[in-house]
């Protein structure tokens, strides 16, 4: 590969030394939620299989979801999906050229965090 940049240029990607403004928090949470739900999908596909296999396994799954731990797991996965979905809408909006100013990006990041927090709370109520 042809080197087009000087290899000895200074780099600082030590994220522990970087202050995170709101858009950065929204962005890193998008990554974390994406990674988390990728593993969460295993539970969902298992649940899909159990829910469709037979009436007995469907009822057993329903019974299982009465427990506190399964409810918490489901809520955590759903929270990941909700956040990833809302933060994804933020990306699509910015791709189309909206909220690209410094102020606009801050407003949109705040909106993403608030809206997803509300929806996650609503999801919690729905599960319980």
């Amino acid at each position: 590969m042809v080197k087009t940049v000087k290899s000895q240029r200074p780099v600082n990607l030590d994220i522990t030394t970087i202050k995170f403004p709101l858009p950065a928090i929204a962005s890193i949470l998008h990554r974390i939620s994406g990674l988390a739900i990728f593993f969460g999908i295993a539970f969902l596909i298992w649940g899909l299989g159990a829910s469709l296999e037979s009436e007995e396994s469907f009822n057993a799954l329903k019974e299982c979801l009465n427990g506190v731990v399964p409810k918490l797991i489901l809520w955590a996965i759903l929270a990941g999906f909700i956040y990833h979905f809302i933060a994804g809408l933020r990306h699509l909006m910015m791709d189309m050229g909206y909220f690209e100013t410094l102020q606009g990006a801050k407003v949109l990041a705040t909106l993403v965090l608030v809206v997803s927090a509300v929806l996650i709370a609503v999801a919690g109520v729905w599960i319980w």
Partner: peptide, 8 residues
Amino acid sequence: YAKWHAYM
């Protein structure tokens, strides 16, 4: 179960 199965 019947409704869920039919839907999916």
